[in-house]
């Protein structure tokens, strides 16, 4: 989701990024990307992790962060203005610009649940790390092609029914054909905000 996006195709690419990276994650599920009559887009993400198990909690948070920043990463990749080496070194301000404040702060919100409290510096460095990995993953030709196809499908449905809620769902054969054979990372590492003491307090 990106506030006041003026470019419909870029918005469709943005949401396709959420859908594609969410589809690839082991520990979260995405069902569909939605384009509302009011003009906003959204991808539903759900997870069923056991938050009392430290490793499971961290994997779940990492996946949520990856999905949250994937929209901005997809836009940058499809725009083709940055090569792989530049994507791998992209700076925080450019990431914030690409993701938009809503997705960026969603990623931040998840990371803030890692421990009490990660510093803002470590949160931002973590987002940079994950964003770079996601962007490089999406820059493969098969992934870039899938992003374009998903976006085209989304745009065509929006154009056909501009006053209705339309969606692109992973339940559809057409969508499953687009992602078939695609290989993306299924987990993302977190190294800046983790702590051994993630579920227990120190003193009773």
């Amino acid at each position: 989701m990106k506030r006041e996006h003026e470019n419909a195709r870029a918005l469709a690419i943005h949401e396709a990024g959420h859908l594609l990276v969410g589809w690839a994650q082991r520990v979260v599920s995405v069902s569909a990307s939605v384009w509302s009559p009011e003009g906003f887009t959204f991808t539903e993400v759900s997870a069923d992790a056991d938050w009392t198990a430290a490793e499971e909690k961290t994997r779940s948070i990492a996946a949520q962060v990856a999905v949250a920043v994937a929209g901005g990463a997809a836009e940058l990749v499809v725009a083709g203005e940055l090569g792989v080496s530049e994507l791998a070194e992209i700076a925080l301000d450019d990431i914030l610009e690409a993701t938009g404040g809503i997705d960026f702060q969603l990623a931040q919100e998840w990371l803030a649940l890692q421990r009490h409290d990660p510093s803002q510096d470590s949160i931002e460095l973590e987002i940079v790390d994950v964003f770079r990995l996601v962007a490089v993953d999406l820059s493969g030709s098969h992934a870039t092609s899938a992003l374009g196809e998903l976006a085209d499908l989304f745009l065509s449905r929006r154009a056909a029914r501009p006053r209705e809620r339309v969606s692109v769902s992973l339940d559809e054969h057409e969508v499953r054909d687009i992602v078939a054979g695609l290989t993306l990372r299924t987990d993302y590492p977190l190294g800046r905000t983790t702590t051994p003491n993630i579920t227990e307090v120190t003193t009773r």
Partner: peptide
């Protein structure tokens, strides 16, 4: 009822650039 002491925080999360 008991006293629950957590670990020390590492900082204070803010809005981006805050």
């Amino acid at each position: 009822a008991y006293v629950e002491v957590d670990e020390e925080s590492y900082g204070t999360p803010t809005a981006p650039r805050g």
